[in-house]
Design a protein around this nucleic acid. Structure first.
Length: 1036
RNA sequence: GGGCGGAUAGCUCAGGGGUAGAGCGUCGCCCUUACAAGGCGAGGGUCGCAGGUUCGAAGCCUGCUCCGCCCACCA
């Protein structure tokens, strides 16, 4: 970094910027500064301003952020910074989640790897000590990551789901729900993971679709030996726990057997054939179903209906229990094979067929789950769900994108009781105690005695609560609940819940229920569900796939601003997944650099600039007014986009304004005034430039906080002072909506059109500017006026307040073949003098192509107009528009055809009489050219560093191109402008009425352009004198 | 089995009844006094398929085909 930004946390003292932006130094410096100045800390006592609060979805404390988190952080920080700048009392609260199973598994795995011990070897207490140690060691990484991303989180309020306050909230909620009868303990069938050794909630089951399975049939002999019933199963081992066979009560095939018994071929037990219309689909298979109540959810229901016994044959470890008789102790999958073999041996095998099926697997470890009978704690969910449904129906909380509302509703209306106990150690231990008699005492803290029998020997329930139980309380537990705190008062309900749609049930729905129940109000007004971040190939990022990207890797390479802007630009409110492409990030890093250099330009030219706030009144030129109009449009569009959560549009809007309007157009246009000597125009340009840049940086700050802050400080140091420039952009005001100025935009359009037309001709004709324009001097223009705008009076009218911009024709000797190319646009016609270099064939081809294009378009519109239905039924303005379009196209075509005729040597070369030129258009013409007027080539330091190949490749081509054209140049080249710093005082008469006719062909050959050489490359940057030295500034 | 997205330029994506867009990539020209992480220009699309509504469809409706996701107890 060459810029002399001080290491201090004060605005940079110098405005010398290096040529390229380097985020490495800037980003950490500003984050540190913001933090030190306490900008992120919210004042809960400040009720004078509207509050805006977001609680960060707490990442797994021992985890590492991935790009999905980066997206979350980015979007929330955009909202937070935007609102903070908009005058809100903002709170963004960070925190982490203990992530029960996930964390415990990680530590267990590590323990196994390093010490070859299990948690049971250590015991509960020691194991927990290890987990806490692990947490202390790795828990800081996500903080570092968030800081690198620039997240303006209130770190002083950081919470952890297992810290003391939150644990207290968890116990409080559990106890209250118990007291209200909304928490209960029951022995039911649950999804059990034999590997994690814990119960899981329905949500933690991943249904793996189309798992290749086998539907195997076998026969149950009737107990009286009178026959058999063939049943089919995908899990033969469960037949050991069968306690019935079910058939449809109206199935004629089985009418006679209902109520009779079958005999179990392995255990000899006898059990009944029952008729059950709910379970059995007579059209499927044999129409008879084996019933295993202790290992199948449907069968469990059947058992309830028919009072069947429950027989557990598979244990918590996935092995067969003693009830499985000869198969006891066998792994369930081994038992599957063994059972099949055993039954086959008994002649009961009735064949098998392939049967794709859905398999329930553990969300954490992918192990095939086993429905098991066990005692667990549940939350009675329906009473909690009802208000949560109503709140969304009533619009008290709304979803964005809206489509998620239905998803939420469908789930909430179909919700089952929530199994909240987990057979883990890491988590909130359930505040329930048992006495020897098995009485349960639920309390906020360890009770002295059993509430039922007074027994003093109590043992606490060993299970812990589902991680999501504490997460469900996050929006209020983090604000100090159950105490009545200022934080709750000020910041609850939170404004926005921003998270991924993958946890809408796990988390969002449960927060809704708990928030409504315990706070009496929704936990958030808006739920913004962001898309999933996928890799370049569109694959979901996952640890197992190994395609997870650490945001730090990206921020290190491209800068946090580039990553943030990329994520914002890819986040539409439509919910489409994000495929993060590296090119895109690179592109936005370039954008940061663009801003950097635009500011650099400004700093070089804003000495003595007026208060930027006075830009509207000081704006002098059409270009000034045009830019301010464009800026107004950009401001409004950006604010609209942010309000609509259209981060993509906000990003695109600012991007386009900065790059296209400000950099590509205005900065070039402004040079006319900045380098000129019209004091008023100069002042206007300075004010407009400073104002536009200031406003753009404010607009952009939420998305690119670092580079905008750095540049804004530089700008402030230059033009600030009385303008109320704050200490940080972070606390500066966000641009407010402003009135549009369509007239300014419209009236300037022809100038832009002229420039584009000229560029187009040049580009397509592939002619270097020097050849084209050198020495052509036109009435009313300075020596290097390079093109002519010709227009009839009618067109002039349409030019509105830039009507004076029409120029004289030049470089086209009457009666001769035209030494110019022509471009016709709406409201103008440009003759581009080619000064002898014109390739007639090429120009003819170019014009023909353009004519063909006009004809094609006109044909299309005319066809529409020829349709009576269209003229009759389409809205009047659409028809008028079409007619005007046809006229316009026709006119342009006629002009081109006239030009075409001249090219062919026929036609009338006489130009129309045209009013004199105005200076603005000359500026536009200069802009179209964008090339220095002399051939001085200054060595560039950064070229030396470039790959040689590129230079070698480009160099010769460029040089070769210049060769032949140089022959046509007149002897004298005039620089477009003088060195900005010291413009020679000049007062040329603005009217050099007589156009100097260039006589290209006799011009003295110009020296061939010097070739690039090593010595020139090596020359000191500023040493090479410009050919011809400084010239007086152009005048007109 | 239900439900929700998506399919638009080589790639990544906007648009959403009235002349098909951006960025990147490609090609050509250009080291130019803010920026080669740059400037200027060009080429590139029967908007997944088939019907329908309409003066007019990429957009609206219907069906279909692919891709992705969510929910669901057919043994």
């Amino acid at each position: 970094m060459e810029n002399q930004v001080s290491e201090e946390t004060t605005p940079p003292a110098s405005t010398e910027l290096s040529k390229a932006y380097d985020h490495h130094e800037v980003e950490p410096r500003w984050y540190r500064t913001w933090l030190e100045r306490g900008y992120f800390h919210a004042d809960a006592g400040d009720r004078s301003r509207p509050a805006f609060s977001i609680v960060l979805p707490p990442p797994n404390v021992t985890g590492s952020l991935h790009l999905g988190h980066a997206l979350t952080a980015t979007i929330q920080d955009v909202l937070i910074r935007w609102k903070r700048m908009s005058g809100f009392n903002v709170l963004w609260l960070p925190g982490t989640d203990h992530a029960g199973i996930a964390t415990q598994m990680v530590v267990e795995k590590e323990l196994q790897r390093t010490e070859k011990r299990s948690r049971h070897d250590l015991g509960r207490e020691e194991f927990l000590r290890r987990v806490w140690a692990w947490k202390e060691q790795y828990g800081s990484r996500i903080g570092v990551q968030h800081q690198a991303l620039g997240a303006s989180l209130d770190w002083q309020r950081e919470r952890f789901t297992m810290d003391e306050g939150l644990s207290r909230a968890v116990r409080e909620v559990f106890v209250r729900l118990w007291e209200e009868g909304l928490v209960y303990r029951a022995k039911k069938l649950i999804n059990w993971c034999p590997r994690c050794h814990t119960a899981l909630s329905d949500l933690e089951v991943n249904h793996e679709e189309n798992h290749p399975g086998e539907l195997w049939s076998f026969a149950y002999p009737l107990a009286d030996g009178s026959g058999e019933i063939v049943v089919a199963t995908t899990r033969p081992e469960t037949m050991l726990g069968d306690t019935a066979v079910a058939v449809h009560p109206e199935d004629a095939r089985w009418k006679g057997v209902i109520g009779r018994n079958v005999r179990h071929p392995v255990t000899g037990r006898e059990f009944p054939v029952v008729g059950d219309a709910i379970l059995v689909d007579p059209a499927f298979g044999t129409g008879a179903v084996k019933v295993t109540p202790a290992h199948d959810f449907n069968d469990f229901e059947v058992a309830q209906r028919h009072a069947l016994p429950l027989l557990s044959v598979i244990g918590p470890d996935g092995r067969m229990t003693a009830e499985a008789g000869p198969f006891a102790g066998m792994d369930r999958f081994e038992a599957r094979k063994a059972v099949k073999a055993a039954l086959a041996e008994k002649g009961l095998d009735r064949g098998a067929k392939a049967h794709p099926m859905a398999l329930g697997k553990c969300q954490r470890c992918e192990t095939v789950l086993e429905p098991l009978l066990s005692d667990q704690w549940y939350v009675r969910i329906e009473p909690l769900a009802r208000p949560a449904i109503a709140a969304v129906e009533e619009g008290r909380t709304r979803f964005i994108p809206e489509g998620w509302t239905n998803t939420y509703m469908a789930w909430m209306r179909n919700i089952h009781d929530w199994c909240i106990s987990r057979q883990l150690w890491w988590g909130h231990q359930i505040p329930a105690w048992y006495c020897a008699d098995g009485h349960v005492t639920v309390a906020r803290s360890a009770p002295e005695a059993c509430a039922t029998c007074g027994d003093r020997a109590l043992r606490q329930d060993e299970d812990v609560l589902d991680t999501w139980f504490s997460s469900a309380l996050w929006p209020f537990s983090t604000l100090g609940w159950p105490d009545r705190t200022a934080e709750l008062e000020t910041f609850y309900p939170t404004s926005v819940m921003e998270t991924g749609h993958d946890i809408i049930f796990f988390w969002v729905a449960r927060m809704m229920m708990m928030g409504l129940h315990f706070m009496g109000d929704v936990p958030f007004r808006t739920v913004f569900l962001h898309p999933m971040v996928r890799d370049e190939k569109g694959q979901k990022m996952s640890k197992t796939k190994g395609n997870v990207i650490d945001p730090l890797v990206i921020t290190e390479k491209y800068g946090a601003d580039a990553l943030r802007f990329t994520l914002a630009a890819l986040t539409s409110a439509q919910g489409r997944d994000i495929k993060l492409a590296r090119d895109r990030i690179e592109g936005y890093r370039a954008f940061a650099n663009k801003l950097w250099n635009a500011t650099r330009f400004a700093l070089m030219n804003l000495d003595g600039a007026p208060d930027p706030a006075r830009a509207p009144e000081l704006a002098r030129t059409p270009a000034d007014r045009w830019l301010l109009a464009r800026l107004a449009r950009a401001v409004n569009a950006t604010v609209d986009a942010l309000e609509a959560y259209r981060f993509d549009e906000a990003a695109a809007t600012v991007y386009r304004f900065c790059w296209n309007d400000l950099c590509d157009w205005y900065i070039e246009l402004s040079k006319e005034a900045l380098y000129g000597d019209d004091a008023a125009k100069k002042e206007g340009a300075k004010a407009v430039l400073a104002h536009a840049l200031d406003t753009a940086l404010r607009l952009l700050h939420p998305m690119m906080p670092f580079v905008t802050e750095e540049l804004w400080q530089m700008l402030g140091a230059k033009v600030g002072g009385p303008t109320g420039w704050g200490r940080s952009l972070l606390e500066a005001s966000y641009p407010a909506r402003r009135p549009l100025d369509e007239a300014a935009e419209r009236s300037f359009a022809p100038v832009l059109g002229v420039v584009e037309a000229i560029r187009n001709v040049r580009g397509e004709m592939n002619v270097p500017w020097k050849t084209v324009f050198q020495g052509v001097e036109v009435g009313g223009l300075s020596a290097e006026a390079l093109a002519t705008l010709r227009s009839e009076q009618a067109r002039v009218e349409r030019l509105g307040n830039v009507r004076g911009l029409v120029l004289h024709e030049a470089g086209r000797p009457a009666g001769r073949r035209p030494q110019c190319a022509v471009a016709v646009g709406e409201g103008f016609e440009v003759l581009v003098p080619l000064a002898g270099a014109v390739d007639m064939a090429a120009e003819t081809a170019r014009v023909d192509k353009e004519i063909a294009r006009l004809v094609a378009e006109a044909d299309g519109v005319e066809k529409r107009l020829a349709n009576p239905s269209f003229v009759e039924r389409a809205p009047r303005e659409v028809v008028e528009e079409a007619r005007a379009r046809v006229a316009e196209l026709g006119e342009r075509r006629r002009k081109l055809e006239a030009h075409r005729a001249l090219l062919a040597g026929t036609g009338d070369p006489q130009p129309a009489a045209i009013p004199p030129a105005a200076p603005e258009i000359a500026g536009a013409v200069g802009l179209a050219r964008r090339a220095p007027s002399d051939l001085a080539v200054r060595p560039r330091a950064n070229l030396v560093a470039k790959p040689a190949g590129k230079m070698v490749k480009k160099g010769p081509a460029g040089m070769a191109r210049r060769g032949p054209s140089a022959l046509a140049l007149p002897a004298k080249a005039t620089p477009r402008k003088a060195a900005p710093k010291k413009a020679a005082p000049k007062k040329a008469t603005p009217k050099k009425a007589t156009p100097k006719k260039a006589t290209p062909k006799k011009a003295a050959p110009r020296k061939p352009a010097p070739k690039r050489t090593a010595t020139r490359k090596a020359a000191p940057r500023k040493a090479a004198p410009r050919k011809g030295g400084p010239k007086p500034a152009r005048r007109r």
